[in-house]
Amino acid sequence: MSNNPDLDLDYVANLARLALSDTEKTGFSGQLADILRYMDKLRQVDVTGIEPMAHASPVFNVWEADVARPGLPVEAALRNAPAQRQNLIVVPKVVE
């Protein structure tokens, strides 16, 4: 992180829900600092009055009518679940 005060690796890793090892932290902070320095070149571009582009070819009002389609049978829905009980997905206890 000393390489790049802008990127708080611990904060961002927590937001991204990624546990990083110390080795990864050291490696990433240097590499990401390089990359972000490279990204900084975008500051040279005058973007005054330019609309941001969210879609390559935007069209409006793409929707479907409210007509139900069959979903997945519960066996298919839970086929890949790492842990399940009585057709529910089991996770460690969530404390609210």
Partner: peptide, 17 residues
Amino acid sequence: TRVAAGYGEPENTLTDP
């Protein structure tokens, strides 16, 4: 999504990808 919605249906029977 177009899967049916409903209350009180058996668990995980109203899903799709």
